[in-house]
Structures are given as C-alpha cells and as structure tokens.
Design a protein around this nucleic acid. Structure first.
Lengths: 206, 206
DNA sequence: CAGCCTAGTGGCAGTCACTGCCAACTCGTC
DNA sequence: GACGAGTTGGCAGTGACTGCCACTAGGCTG
C-alpha cells in the first residue's frame, strides 16, 4: 500500500489525519469498553471533533475501527484486478491473496491494526458484524469485476463458488490467526494462509 | 420440520400465531417498501400489536423477516448434530445439507418464504446484513459443536476450513438460486446445490 | 368456584445512532 | 483582498431499542 499522491492538499492531509485519529481512538475505546458500551459521542470527544463530523467520515460507529481492513481490501482488489482476464484459476487467485497478505504483514502498522481488529471481533459482536459486511461487499465487488470482464450481466455459479471459496479460506485463516494471537501464540498470517490452502485441498479431496 | 409438541398451550399457540403474523407482515412490507423505509411502528400496526411487543419477539427489525431461514438453520443443526462424532468428512456433511435442503423444498410454505427472503436480500442491504449475521452464527455454532465433541476448547484450522467451505457452498447455491428465481427462471434449490458441489470440486482441482 | 401465580402486553420515558439543514470558517485561487 | 469550494459544528428531528411499571388473562391449586 504505497502512497499514491505525491503532494496531497493541506485539506486532504488534515482529512487523512482526522480519519486516522478517529480510527485510532475508536479502536482503543472498543478494545477497552467494547463497541456496545462506546457511544459516538465518546469517540468524537476523544478524537477532538463533533459527533456530526464523525458521520462525515464513517457511516456507522463500527466502521470507524476497520480502517486497516478496508485498506487491505482495496489493495487486494487492485491485485485481483490485474489477474482478472488473464487467469481466474483458484490457485492463481490464492497466490494473489497470499501476496496481499505478505505485503500487509510487511507493514508493521497495518498488520498490527488488523490483528487488533480481528482479535476484537472474536469477542465483540458489533465489530464482528461490521467485518462480516465488509467481507461480503468485497466478495460482491469481485463478482461485479468478473462479470464486467466477461461482458455478462449475470454472475455464473462457478464464479460464485470461486469467490465464496476464496473468501472462506481468507476468513478461516484470519480467524485461526487471530485466535492464536489472542491466546498468546505468535502465529504468522502468511503461514496460516498457506496451511489453510492445504487444508482446503485435503478437505475437498483435491 | 415436523411439529414437535402435540398439544401446545393456548398461550404457546397464541405466541406462535403472533410470531407468524409478524413475520408475514414484515416480509410483505419489506418487499413493498424495503426494510429501510419500513418502521417498526409500521410492522407492529400491521400485525396488530404494540411496538414494545414487537421487540419481545425479535431483537431487530430485520430479524422479523428471517423466520423460515431460522427454521431451516435449526433443522440443519439437528441433522448435523447426528453426524458429528461419527463422520465429519466434507462429503458427508454436504449430504446432510442436501437432505436439509430437500426437506425444506418439500414443504411448500417453507421454501417459498426462503425464496422471498433470499430474493429480497439481493436488493435490500438491511435484510442481506441480517442474513449474513444469521449464516455466521450458524457457522459459529457448528464450530462450537465440533469443539465440544472433540473435548477441545479451541477450534482447529481444519474444522474452520470445513465449516467455512460448507457455508460458502450453501451461500453460493442460495445466491445463484435466488438470482435465477428473481430473473423468472424456475431453478431448483437441491439441483443448484448439487451443481455447486461439482463446481467446488472442479475449482479446487479435486 | 375463588384466588393466586405467571406469562404476555401496552404505554411511557429515556438513550443513542444517524440525518438534514444552516451558519461559520478556512484553504486555495484569481 | 475577494470569491468559491470544502469542512466543520450546532440544532432539531426521526427512529431503533430498552427498562420500568401497571394491567390483563391463561392456567393451576385448594
């Protein structure tokens, strides 16, 4: 996830700073009290903005915590975009996903925030729900891109199975990784995903 | 889904009737106006109850539409319960799921309501989100049952992959089926699931 | 049958997520 | 220095959801 714009506006820089600040305090507050017991007013006060402004940055309270995950999804979408058209075999797409995971793991801040969110989701239903929605949107976006590439308005069953299987593997890997981390083990995300791919083959008799 | 209790209480019968009535009018209103533009007051008024009572039946507005899906999940959970311990191969679990789908398809009312909900979910983000949460809860319950059977407190990666793959196939089949139905084709749910299983093998190179 | 216990219901007040609108302010530009 | 666009805060309003309490009615017991 390299910085795209070389010279962002002062306004743009402020906006990004405010957004980052909100994400930071939201994650902290959710971790301390849970999303249920954290109000938007709490987050806004901690971030030094008005509640009204909060909703100009995030549509829902829970969304405020998912910054790192959204960035990962965007990066993954870019990588998948390059593959679509040339090859859409499960193995190639999994490679793509593994690359994205490796890139995220290389950025200390990014992977750490993702870990915090995933661990939080294990206990916090609100965050878990938001993450679920984000995953589903990512899958739907994948459908749309493939359909656009084939010029067809409808998504065929194979594409659905492909996308859902890919998503299932990613979710399983994230959950296992977060669970291990929460228990104090120092699991590696990329290695976990590698094991997940093997398990998928074993399970489906491939 | 046979009737379990032979002689339910008058109270119990009334409760079930009220619940069914709420589900009915909620589904109708969502289909007509969308869940976003339907208020709890609307649903309560149409069902002839107070808004306060509505929340004694359903935790959220969107949950009110998912009756048939919850019943299906409960039936599936019972069937899976019998398998767990004896065999937890993907193929056996898929058979189990196929049986549950066939049983639901045999009940006209049940399958029709599920179709309405799934078609609604294609356009209505609120309903889609609720359905997503329900699916996730079902998957989590499966984890818990398997973990309980093995006596382990932690869920191993293979179990996660198994459950997520099973869920992915079910979701793909439901989405494809609902999409076809929404376009006027008369797709069969069990046949669609059969095709989904084949696609999964093809995709994973099994 | 009378009386009691309990489940179910409605109303009310309150909290909180989220939105539309408007006024104030500020960055960037001409 | 003024103007236009982007950003913010306050305010009022809607609607989801909850806790509390009083009321009703089914079901049981003496």
């Amino acid at each position: 996830m390299p910085t795209a714009t070389p010279t962002p506006d002062l306004r743009e820089r402020r906006r990004l700073a405010t957004q980052a600040e909100i994400e930071q305090v939201a994650l902290d507050l959710f971790a301390r009290k849970g999303s249920e017991r954290t109000t938007v007013d709490d987050i806004a006060a901690a971030a030094g903005i008005s509640p009204r402004t909060f909703f100009r940055y995030f549509a829902t309270k829970e969304d405020a915590a998912l910054g790192a995950n959204r960035a990962f999804d965007a990066d993954l979408a870019r990588r998948l975009e390059d593959r679509i058209g040339s090859s859409t075999s499960l193995t190639d797409l999994e490679d793509c996903l593994a690359d994205a995971l490796a890139a995220a793991s290389a950025e200390t801040g990014s992977i750490e925030r993702m870990r915090r969110v995933r661990c939080l989701a294990l206990e916090d239903a609100g965050v878990r729900g938001a993450l679920l929605r984000l995953d589903a949107e990512q899958t739907a976006a994948f459908y749309a891109r493939v359909a656009a590439a084939t010029g067809s308005a409808i998504v065929d069953l194979r594409t659905r199975v492909l996308a859902e299987t890919l998503g299932a593997g990613l979710r399983a890997a994230f959950d296992d990784w977060a669970g291990r981390r929460a228990r104090g083990e120092d699991a590696d995300l990329v290695a976990t995903y590698r094991r997940t791919r093997r398990e998928l083959r074993a399970v489906t008799g491939g």
